[in-house]
Design a binder for these strands. Structure first.
Length: 884
RNA sequence: GCGUUCUUAGCUCAGUUGGUUAGAGCGCAUCGUUGACAUCGAUGAGGUCACUGGUUCGAAUCCAGUAGAACGCACCA
């Protein structure tokens, strides 16, 4: 302890050291035992992703929760892992191959998968290494990956099970087609954006007449797939068209004019072109009216042969071209500017094409019932609760989930087709054969479905499969349901809702008890931090600069659950400064230790010492408050309480009072032991938030064995007997007296070193006695020449004054007081109190108030009134003194 | 378009079931450095609680409307 300790805290020297120490001692590892478990499963980041600020926030919160639970004596288990992220990873691999001059289409499936695995092994898990720098206390022995062998098996088995239960079916439907990734997407993967587009008014000739019908469309290129014109049967403007046919311009196809209520007479021209293959509503119309379906687009968004014209050209190029051609042919009546919403692919940002396609679906309605119910009845709690509304709305209107993707990277759909195109769902080809045999169908040359499953079809099993819960009971029975899930509201439907569904379906139980929704990390301009905008700081650089502790604190300080985090490096600076403050507080204690003395930190306090009693009370109060905040998931409030306890109470008051009277003296051994005891408590409370510096100091305070490490020490129990309101109030009054004296010094510009004569005229002798008993506190924090405390003190002739709880403080300041300024100050105070008094008197003279308000409220007002009157009288007297 | 949630100091946010003079951190201003820390200390300025109306003895808090913001949902071509 006697070794030299630097004045600047250097996080880089400390953080790796303790992380390694914790790892070496296996403290993050959990195995089932007779303790109560506390479990968190990490929201698995993309396997080839890199750490961004969102991860930093999210994982800091999880670590705080886990560390506190561990200290509380739970068997804490935080399961880390990664997600194969089917479409995102495949897109990255495709891009990388393209850069090397390799086209995906030139590769066989197996060859492509080899590249994908290579990429995964190279980049996989980088993000987990980065999390270690943040201090994440994950059980790394449990690291899972959604494409691990066992995990994959559970995905496939789940598919088969749901299929056999009739919850999965294969069907042709309109789906969201991503022409860039060339795959179907679920509704959740489509982001609707409002864009400025044009509404094209196009006229179609009526067959056999010289008449035209004009329709409005935002997608003129789709006329190539038109198979009808639709009007509302009630629309009298067009009654003459009933039963007629129209000619699609350019392709010159005759199509019927059909009647349907669906058409909104108010919109556009009241006439609608119908393209059943490329619009959801048109498809429905087509079904109702038995229309032909012309699929005029290829999977990559180019025009197909069925479109007859512009074959092979891209849909957007064709849009421009066709509008010109229509105009030249005299079919374009007009174009107008128009705002509409267009769907974009969440992953590739390509404009989605509605497309008729044969896909696999999960039937959601029944499955989601328990998931809705148990969130609404708070069996699963959302923090903040406002997200329940969003959740309910989605769940009540839940639609079937399209789970097949036309990709290679992922879990391949376990369906097998024979030569006739019949299929069975089976785990292996052999099993498939058997099934075909039983059905008396052909079973030679079986081919497995080429598609893979939606990523979320594997991650919805995460809380079960990470414990191998589909095949082994021991672990999952112990750890499941998990306690807290910490995630972003953006993936509430993708992931949270579906985990809840899978949880009830496969465990008959919720997957977690609480969901903590984090906000979005934004830059100063309020933009979401993202790679593409380049507005996100590099997390590891930040850690280097401010320490993981500093960043953790900075982020937590500014973000209540569900609120966005407007990130500013300034926050990290604040965190770093706090580290330094703590460090120096500790350093101060070590500088005041005697050589050769063995200090024993203790929670025993000197009962004669008000500052000890007060500090002990403050600590207990804070533990209590912090526990309450944790229970309500208000981590930022909890941290603020700890921050204030350490900085404001411990450093600014307790340590100041603990300083030896004579410079060069050391702090008495007993006092030091108490101070160290307090410090230990502070470090315990701080540990979940700032694990590194707290462990560092903890280990400095005493030589510890590995099993005495802070992270596995006991979270402090509240000792309510130490919370003595009398001491808290008395100390508070002393603080106020000192502040008042400092204020006087500031106003009259007297240095804090100059000794003052101070007169305190107390309201009663009781308070005078209390002050006298603790006059050391005043003397310690103010340079005093003399101190007179009594109910009867003679006011000095020239003075500056202050009032604390009705007690008058006078400081004679001959030659220093600016009469004019002092008079102004008193006058201002009188005016303020007069206004205040007027308000009180108004209330009290209001019979309504006196009759209706509770007695204690009225009483309080009465007391306020008399106190204020008393203060006013004293101030007026003072004003007179200065008038002379 | 429908729904939900917001709007409190320059910024980010607290404010419990309506009841002292609406709080905190940052920022700002002034003063202060030979002894833990200038990554610091002290002091201070700064708010008609978005707006309008209502309920009430009393409203930042409850109700209605208006304006603005965010999020969610939706097939209007």
């Amino acid at each position: 302890m006697s070794k030299e300790i630097p004045a600047q805290y250097d996080s880089s020297q400390v953080e790796d050291k303790w992380y390694d120490y914790w790892m070496e001692n296996n403290y993050f590892h959990s195995t089932p035992d007779d303790r109560e478990p506390y479990t968190i499963v990490i929201p698995p980041p993309n396997v080839t992703g890199v750490l961004h600020m969102g991860h930093m926030l999210n994982n800091t919160i999880q670590d705080v929760l886990v560390r506190r639970a561990r200290m509380q004596g739970y068997n804490a288990c935080w399961v880390p892992g990664t997600d194969h992220a089917s479409i995102a990873t495949e897109a990255k691999v495709v891009r990388k191959l393209r850069e090397e001059g390799i086209k995906k289409s030139d590769l066989s499936r197996d060859e492509f998968m080899e590249h994908a695995w290579e990429w995964t092994h190279k980049h996989g898990g980088i993000i987990l290494e980065q999390l270690k720098k943040l201090g994440a206390s994950c059980d790394w022995d449990r690291t899972s990956f959604t494409m691990d062998e066992k995990y994959s098996e559970s995905v496939i088995d789940t598919f088969i099970d749901l299929y056999e239960k009739g919850k999965i079916y294969r069907g042709a439907r309109m789906i969201n087609w991503d022409p860039a990734a060339k795959t179907a997407l679920s509704d959740e993967e489509v982001i609707h954006k409002e864009i400025n587009s044009k509404l094209y008014h196009i006229r179609y000739k009526i067959v056999g007449e010289d008449d035209f019908v004009t329709i409005a469309t935002t997608r003129p290129e789709t006329i190539l797939g038109d198979t009808a014109i639709c009007i509302n049967p009630k629309d009298e403007r067009y009654s003459h068209l009933h039963g007629k046919k129209a000619i699609v311009p350019l392709v010159n196809r005759e199509v019927p004019i059909i009647l349907d209520d669906y058409v909104d007479m108010e919109f556009g021209t009241g006439c609608l072109k119908v393209t059943p293959a490329h619009d959801v509503n048109d498809y429905d119309l087509g079904e109702r009216h038995g229309l032909e379906i012309i699929n005029m687009m290829n999977e990559d968004g180019t025009i197909s042969e069925a479109g007859e014209l512009y074959i092979g050209k891209d849909r957007f190029a064709v849009r421009k071209e066709i509008s010109k051609d229509l105009e030249e042919a005299g079919h374009l009546v007009k174009t107008e500017d128009y705002k509409n919403k267009v769907g974009y692919s969440e992953r590739t940002d390509a404009v989605i094409e509605p497309r008729l396609s044969l896909q696999w679906w999960v039937s959601m309605k029944e499955l989601s019932e328990p998931a809705l119910e148990n969130v609404m009845n708070d069996s699963i709690q959302f923090h903040p609760a406002k997200f329940k509304n969003t959740y309910r709305h989605w769940m009540e209107n839940v639609r079937d989930w399209c789970i097949s993707r036309q990709l290679w990277w992922g879990h391949r759909i376990p369906a097998w087709y024979n030569e006739d195109g019949d299929f069975v769902v089976a785990k292996t080809e052999t099993e498939a054969e058997t099934k075909f045999k039983i059905q008396n169908s052909k079973f030679s040359n079986l081919k497995q479905d080429v598609d893979v499953l939606d990523t979320w079809f594997s991650s919805w099993l995460w809380p079960i499969s990470v414990f191998d819960g589909f095949y082994e009971e021991d672990e999952v029975d112990y750890y499941y349901p998990t306690n807290d899930l910490v995630t972003a509201p953006e993936i509430m439907f993708f992931w949270v809702a579906r985990m809840i569904i899978a949880g009830y379906e496969y465990r008959g139980e919720k997957p977690f008890k609480n969901v903590y929704y984090t906000g979005i990390v934004r830059d100063k301009q309020g933009r979401k931090m993202s790679k593409s905008l380049g507005n996100s700081p590099e997390p590891l650089e930040l850690i280097k600069k401010y320490g993981a502790d500093g960043i953790r604190m900075g982020m937590l300080f500014a973000t209540p659950a569900g609120n966005d985090l407007p990130f500013d490096e300034n926050l990290c600076e604040q965190g770093r400064n706090f580290s330094n403050k703590i460090w120096n507080a500790f350093r101060f204690l070590t500088m005041n230790m005697e050589e050769g003395v063995e200090y024993k930190p203790t929670l025993k306090i000197n009962k004669e010492d008000l500052s000890d009693r007060w500090m002990a009370a403050k600590i207990q109060e804070t533990i209590k408050g912090v526990n309450t905040d944790f229970d309500a998931y208000k981590l930022n409030d909890a941290l603020k309480k700890v921050y204030s306890l350490i900085w404001d109470d411990f450093c600014d008051w307790y340590i100041e009072l603990a300083k030896p009277d004579t410079y060069g003296d050391k702090i008495a051994v007993e006092k030091m032991n108490t101070a160290l005891g307090f410090f230990e408590q502070l470090m315990k409370m701080l540990h979940p938030f700032m694990p590194f510096i707290s462990e560092e100091i903890w280990q400095h305070i005493q030589d510890r064995k590995p099993e005495e490490a802070l992270l596995i020490s006991e979270w402090p129990e509240v000792d309510a007997t130490l919370i003595n309101p009398y001491d808290i109030n008395l100390f508070g009054d002393l603080q106020q007296v000192i502040s008042a004296l400092r204020n006087i010094r500031a106003e009259v510009n007297v240095s804090h070193k100059e000794e003052l004569d101070v007169f305190i005229k107390t309201k009663d002798s009781d308070f005078a006695n209390q002050l006298l008993e603790n006059r050391r506190v005043l003397e310690k924090l103010q340079s005093l020449k003399s101190l007179k405390i009594s109910t009867e003190v003679e006011k000095p002739k020239v003075y500056s004054s202050a009032m604390v709880e009705g007690n008058e403080i006078y400081v004679p300041l001959e030659g220093l007081v600016d009469f004019e300024k002092e008079r102004e100050r008193i006058q201002k105070e009188i005016e303020r109190l007069e206004g205040f008094l007027k308000g009180i008197e108004g209330k009290l003279s209001n019979t309504g108030f006196v009759n209706n308000a509770p007695a204690n409220v009225v009483e309080m007002e009465e007391k306020k009134k008399s106190d204020t009157q008393e203060s006013l009288a004293k101030l007026r007297e003072q004003l007179k003194d200065f008038a002379d």
